[in-house]
Design a protein around this nucleic acid. Structure first.
Lengths: 186, 186
DNA sequence: CTTTTTAGTATCGACTCGATACTTGTTGAG
DNA sequence: CTCAACAAGTATCGAGTCGATACTAAAAAG
């Protein structure tokens, strides 16, 4: 005799499966699309395999392999980071940026756009609450937008950059909307 | 400059990934847990590889392999269906029923139980609306509960079974809460 | 009674995924 | 300054998913 939270859990699981099966497209596998999306949305402090590993919740070995596959396909690039020569800075190639236009997740974005805005907001907010709670419980990073971070110091003057009080770095308008490894919700 | 529906899509994707990584437990893989859950919740008309294939949205070859793996592990059983000798009726073994008590999805169920009931209901209803719309768009079955089906004829007298007007079969109280391959929302 | 459809299997190749062991660069304590 | 501890990433292994393709056999349809 299942109760409502069992049913909700089943909905979450089934929705995940739906997105996964849909993400076999353009010759890429689901996790490969997730990597491309991440590299498209992450700020410059978060473009490492380590950050990606934390984002995906996988082991670093698995992530390393997947990055190799994508590099072989010519969709991403790895360059040694001059500030920390153990680390490598990841980026999309031109082909990678072109391919992400055909992201199979676009179908989901369209479906969301067709929903009543109140329902969509309820989905967004309740899902965010659920996900954030689970991530924190697991000691994982939220990877929220930079602008929602407790270390974010906005500058309201025309043309002046924002600022990250944690990393002591200026932030462009673009930076502030990207997702960040270090982000901690305000 | 991402808008809100992009963010919601990212939440859905990331939640799916969370459930997937969590579902590496007890020596089973995510899809194997999904199969066990399905067999635990499906009614007697839906215990075939074909129904499971439709439920998961995978190819029949993939499902056949996964079923073989689970059979080798001693968690499920396959028996030839005497009504249709091409088909095989699937069921959990005692070991399978025991193992499903340790379902890693329980952590999600608990997290949902800890949410405010209004938020949880909003999540449930908006997610159901989203998922159903996507499934219908893809021409897939909803696999809802039997009792919510247009062919379900309830009997309100004590001890009398309900009835399925599509399959012309009586339904126990248990049947009516299980998920059904043939279900079409009322 | 023969064609067509449906249920399931078998096999292949690419790839994920965790686990384990490793290399190399950074950091920090004495 | 040195050396141990740590962190970033790689290499390799084995199990298993997954789609694709080709197959068998039973049921349905004509």
């Amino acid at each position: 005799m299942p109760d409502k939270r069992d049913y909700t859990a089943a909905l979450l699981e089934r929705t995940g499966r739906l997105l996964t099966t849909e993400a076999h497209a353009e010759g890429l596998l689901p996790v490969q699309w997730e990597v491309l999306r991440y590299l498209d949305r992450a700020n410059r402090f978060s473009l490492s395999a380590a950050a990606l590993t934390a984002y995906l919740g996988l082991t670093k070995g698995t992530v390393s392999q997947t990055l190799n596959t994508l590099e072989t396909k010519g969709l991403i690039r790895k360059r040694v980071d001059n500030h920390d020569r153990r680390s490598k800075r990841l980026s999309l190639t031109a082909r990678g940026r072109r391919l992400i236009q055909k992201d199979p997740l676009n179908a989901t974005r369209d479906a969301l756009a067709r929903m009543a805005s109140q329902t969509r907001d309820e989905l967004n907010d309740s899902l965010e609450e659920f996900l954030t709670a689970r991530l924190i419980l697991q000691g994982r990073k939220a990877f929220g937008q930079c602008r929602d971070c407790r270390y974010f110091a906005p500058q309201h003057e025309q043309g002046t950059p924002h600022f990250c009080r944690l990393l002591d770095e200026p932030l462009t308008a673009n930076d502030s909307e990207a997702i960040c490894f270090e982000q901690e919700p305000a």
